[in-house]
Design a protein around this nucleic acid. Sequence first.
DNA 1: AGAACCGCCTGCTTGC
DNA 2: TGCAAGCAGGCGGTTC
Length: 262
Amino acid sequence: MPELPEVETLCRQLRREIVQRRILETVIYDQKLEGIENLRGRRINGVFRRGKNIVLLLDDTKEVMIHLRMTGRLFLSPKKKRERHTRWSLQMENCRIDLVDPRRFATVKLQKGQIGSGKERNDLITGFDFKKFMAKQAPRKVNVKMLLMEGKAVAGIGNIYACEILHRAGISPYKKSARITSEQWKALFQAARRILKTGIEKRGTSISDWRDLYGRQGENQFELQVYGKEGEKCSSCGGIISRINQGGRSTYFCSGCQGIDQ
DNA sequence: AGAACCGCCTGCTTGC
DNA sequence: TGCAAGCAGGCGGTTC
């Protein structure tokens, strides 16, 4: 599932391919996406990431915001036939970019440009306001795992990276946010930055169907310590990794390294 | 207001 | 082998 490192990977690759290029045509293949205006004739002035959104800045002050949700992928498709489950297509003057999404959760929105409104400062890679986090988010009653996955609290973190971050930080997923000290939060965010940066360097986690713009697998799946490893031995302490359910989602953790803290 | 839950989707895995 | 049930999960919306 595309999380911050996967989306960042796509943004970097897209930047190389389509910035300053003109759009010849956009095509909708899924009724769910009907209503997206045809962007014919506009130029792409920039590509950047906002949380897990990919933002294409257009030359008319508007922007296209793409969210891949779970199974969405963007492929550079030189001349090939459309892949199965192609939902939307961006025909550029130099290439074609296809949005492929088997489960149809992905969204594409055309909206007024919000550049300069990146005031949230809740992104651990592009700018994080620790004081604001400590004031607004840290005192909450939700457990730390679910807080990490809330886009408004911390941008871009989904299930895989949340599990990996907590393992690296040595914090139990059960731990209530309000019971974590400022020092512990600092250490947690330091661990988070390391995990996310490695994810970006490895071009994402291809544990199931993630592929980059060129259809290549990432390599971060080889870095995972707990996610998807129920019953396996923890590489740090030799304990057995467990899987629990939190908010309807699987959490993987090592009680040896992270404690129980229910 | 904040926390918890629901529904959107489809392909793959599991169990009988 | 075949078919149904179970599972995966981000996030906006709804309910408690």
